[in-house]
Nucleic acid binder design. Structure first.
Lengths: 339, 339
DNA sequence: CTGAAAGCGCTAACAG
DNA sequence: CTGTTAGCGCTTTCAG
């Protein structure tokens, strides 16, 4: 059996409370007593029981992180950023995968809330997010921060990227390479892709390039979605000469599809992704991308959440938007070819 | 305030115990009472308080997973496998990153144990693992399963890959491609790389190829380690014509080093990795690798752990070894070139 | 079948 | 500065 405060107390002939206070550096304990307690605690390998402590204090120092896919290195990086911020503060991070499944997401949230986590960080897979619809959530009023994806019309704390700016940046870059038939592999409606689509359109219109609806196709979730969506684009009568993909895994799939069809990247089709996943410079063709500072994003989200947890006033809906950064690699570098 | 059992009890004019039993489908409650309780519980959005329950039952239904790097998709995949197995059983998975840092690992383990997790799955970064040296661990006797890496001479539950077989398989494959100067980028001493080195040597000796110590260099931990280690190999007077890398990220770095030096893969240097990370077929040169069934590995580990948790008799040290599978892609396919 | 008593290990609030 | 009295919300044990 593990050592309890009580053991130390009887051992030293003091009261349980004295031990409790001494251990927590409570002010009103004499230096001498504290020293004795600490010493004995160490000797007995005392470790506080977090369960009991949580029950009494109503704080667990656990934070839940709900993400659609751990395998997607963007989210893994975000998760690491979160942990990096929270760990020194004494919070334990509990990560849950939803596989982009709304039902799974709801279940995970319920579970975490039932475990009385102190706060929640969520990259939601729900088209329109209603935590309010979560009875468990509502009753406990667990503070939460959304990341990466902000369902339209939802007022909430949010940390993400300037999606419209991102879309415009990527598209403008492709146009600057001399491409004119610029297509877009957009993400599912549930994601943050609407803003990127807007940015895409804006860049086109600013460059005076006509918008062709058939150039925007959706690349769902799966690992192969970029591949198949690209195949579709290639089969169009007027095949695109550039593609802006809403994330890097999709872009990687797109590159494969282009190469397999016998065409070249970027000569025939220039490609750019988003997210700057860590292996994107090692791909078949090193991938141009828009960096989203994933680690930083995680840290910011964690910071905001802690603020919410510790504030007595639940000052809702702050937004933190991280500026996108263009990273040019071979997959879109066409200028050189035209010299 | 969230609903408690007590609320339901007074509400229905029954005792707290009746509610408790009814909610847990305890046998001795009349169907009628149970129905009433369940109904009211739903109406009041009752959610059991896990903290309180844990304190009373001494079970948390949380399982800790301690891994060196979430960003390495091998571990991400393992983690998903673990969750896939544990989730339906009602266990929550708590993942901790150690960044290959022994001190961090020790700290994470302590934290998890202090939180009274029911069991632990660890891919250790410690050279020689001594949980026994963990006072907290020892006193609580938390069941645990090691994965991927088994420190020499340690008796413990373990789920991993047949490393020696893996090393031999990879090396034999390179030899079969006609390579004779086969080098090996081995992992750090803390990892499971010793077995792979043995396999490498065995394959050489079986093929009657002499072993050159300078052909075995260590590729540490960092993302660039494969790159720099490969550069070293390329600078040797007698440059290798093939390299077996102990994992895929290192292999990816090695490929880059070879290409940057102006040589070809696999024509000048054939390369094979291990782990079959999900993007390995999208690399600059599609990477041959040895698949380790990461997801399955996670599931097996979870299964073994649950067995330990639920067994009254702590039947220690089972070993589950997953057979490696050769996957040939372009990076090592030389036979075709020689026709 | 139902319930009263006791306790899991710790802490908040107040007395001494 | 130290200790007492009450819980936190649930479960286990054992009487009714």
């Amino acid at each position: 059996m593990a050592t309890r405060m009580k053991d130390i107390a009887v051992d030293l002939g003091v009261s349980l409370m004295t031990v409790s206070k001494a251990l927590r550096n409570h002010s009103d304990i004499s230096e001498e007593t504290r020293a004795r307690v600490l010493k004995r605690a160490r000797e007995l390998n005392y470790e506080p029981n977090w369960i009991a402590r949580s029950l009494a204090t109503r704080r667990t120092y656990m934070v839940g992180v709900v993400i659609p896919d751990l395998m997607h290195s963007f989210f893994a990086e975000v998760a690491k950023g979160i942990a990096r911020h929270l760990d020194p503060l004494g919070y334990q991070v509990v990560i849950s995968n939803t596989d982009e499944n709304p039902a799974a997401e709801r279940r995970q949230v319920d579970l975490l809330v039932a475990r009385h986590i102190d706060g929640l960080i969520i990259a939601t897979a729900l088209p329109s997010w209603k935590l309010n619809a979560h009875p468990a959530f509502e009753s406990r009023a667990t503070p939460y921060v959304l990341i990466d994806r902000l369902p339209a019309g939802l007022e909430a704390n949010y940390v993400g990227v300037r999606d419209e700016e991102l879309g415009e940046m990527a598209t403008a870059h492709l146009l600057a390479q001399g491409c004119r038939r610029v297509a877009h592999l957009r993400g599912p409606a549930t994601a943050n892709s609407a803003g990127r689509v807007r940015g895409y359109k804006r860049a086109l219109s600013r460059a005076g390039v006509e918008f062709h609806p058939e150039y925007v196709v959706q690349a769902g979730g799966g690992d192969m979605s970029g591949f198949t969506a690209m195949q579709h684009l290639l089969s169009l009568p007027s095949r695109p000469d550039a593609v802006f993909c809403y994330n890097d895994p999709v872009a990687a799939g797109a590159i494969q599809a282009v190469l397999e069809s016998g065409l070249q990247v970027p000569a025939d089709v220039a490609i750019i992704g988003a997210g700057n996943v860590h292996y994107s410079d090692q791909l078949r063709v090193p991938l141009s991308t828009i960096d989203q500072s994933s680690g930083l994003l995680g840290e910011e989200a964690a910071g905001l959440l802690v603020q919410c947890i510790e504030a007595k006033t639940p000052a809702k809906h702050s937004h933190i938007l991280i500026p996108p950064r263009l990273i040019v690699r071979d997959s879109s570098r066409r200028a050189a070819l035209r010299t």
